[in-house]
Simulated assay, not measured.
Amino acid sequence: MSQAYALPAPTGPFRQMPLERAGSVAVDFTSVGIGETLATATRWPDHSHAVHELLWNDAGASTLRVGRRTWTVTPAIGLWMPAGTVHSAVSPAGTRYRATYFTPDADRSLGLSGTGMRGETSPPAPPGAVPEAPPGALPQTPSSVRITVLVRELLDRLGSTTLKASSRELTEAMVLDVLAPSPHQFLVHEPTAGLLQPIVAAVLADPADARSLGDWSRQLRVSERTITRAFQTETGLGFARWVGSVRVQRATTLLADGEPLEDIAEAMGYRSASAFGAAFRKLTGTTPSSLRH
């Protein structure tokens, strides 16, 4: 196994890692997995891997950032990070993170095509992506994926030290075959438009900020339609759904930390735990309690 992908020694809350281009490091595996329970809150500054990375958690919630987009990784929703994509990460104390690395040509070497996450049209590469990534059928942009019971069991099987080569290859093929995009994702895209910066700064500083679209329209002296169009152009969401995405992402970390539901609802600006739960389900397709550990 390449030293670059050995489990890093617990060196404290700051983990410096290299910037690697896709396929730039020779490895002697098709896939390899790592995992760690963090004793302290930990930060990985900008780095990139020569191989694809599939991330998920056994416990807790981590956040990963690519450019101005931030994903939250949980036990139920993981993240596919393509080889060569520059990203940073933060995990709170107590998080049990998992990662499985796949070589850039894993799907071709395993004889796969047109199933699972393959064969889909990828959106334009996000800011921070290292250019000249080799073409392949696996997603070339970060993608939220469902960590189902089957996917988890297959990934756990890959961690066995007694797995025969033929069984390992079959298991790797099954993982990539059944891996599917999540219909919901804990993603916040921070818009860059100057008009929206007062809104973005206010909501990120305090997700409970109760100012409505009409309030911001009057404060910024522009029409509600202008604000809505600016949000749609950059994030694909309207004002209310963008605010909701910020609240859900922030709440996800608090849920993983075990904060009381009533306290989280209040901190996110909802009048009750039931109102928060309803909004959470609408945006994510799951219940807040499903993210407890």
Score class of each variant (00 low, 15 high):
232 Q>I: 03
6 A>K: 13
8 P>V: 06
151 V>E: 12
16 Q>F: 08
199 I>Q: 01
153 E>M: 07
231 F>R: 00
212 S>M: 02
6 A>L: 14
61 A>G: 08
198 P>K: 05
275 A>D: 15
265 A>N: 09
65 R>C: 09
21 R>V: 05
104 P>D: 04
231 F>K: 01
215 D>M: 06
10 P>S: 11
71 W>M: 04
180 A>S: 15
231 F>S: 04
221 R>I: 12
128 G>C: 05
176 L>I: 05
270 Y>F: 15
139 P>V: 03
256 A>D: 06
46 D>T: 15
67 G>P: 00
41 A>V: 08
238 G>V: 02
36 E>H: 13
192 T>R: 05
76 A>L: 15
93 A>H: 10
280 F>R: 07
176 L>V: 05
161 T>M: 13
77 I>G: 05
123 P>Y: 04
46 D>C: 08
8 P>N: 05
115 T>Y: 12
245 S>A: 15
94 G>R: 08
44 W>P: 03
62 S>I: 11
29 F>E: 02
93 A>V: 08
229 R>L: 00
201 A>T: 07
124 P>Y: 02
112 L>K: 01
143 S>E: 12
205 A>T: 07
146 R>F: 08
106 A>E: 05
247 R>N: 07
241 R>K: 12
205 A>W: 01
76 A>C: 08
157 R>I: 06
86 V>R: 13
187 L>E: 09
178 V>W: 11
42 T>I: 05
81 M>E: 08
99 A>H: 05
268 M>E: 07
260 P>M: 15
7 L>I: 11
14 F>I: 13
132 E>H: 11
199 I>A: 00
246 V>T: 10
223 S>M: 04
148 T>V: 04
166 S>F: 11
262 E>P: 11
255 L>W: 10
32 V>C: 11
120 E>L: 15
62 S>V: 08
72 T>W: 10
86 V>T: 13
99 A>L: 06
29 F>Y: 07
201 A>L: 05
175 V>P: 00
94 G>W: 11
243 V>S: 00
186 F>D: 10
286 T>M: 12
20 E>L: 05
45 P>K: 01
290 S>E: 15
225 R>N: 03
22 A>K: 02
141 T>A: 13
69 R>W: 00
66 V>N: 03
41 A>Y: 09
29 F>Q: 00
220 L>C: 04
240 A>F: 01
208 A>S: 14
165 A>E: 15
255 L>M: 13
53 E>L: 13
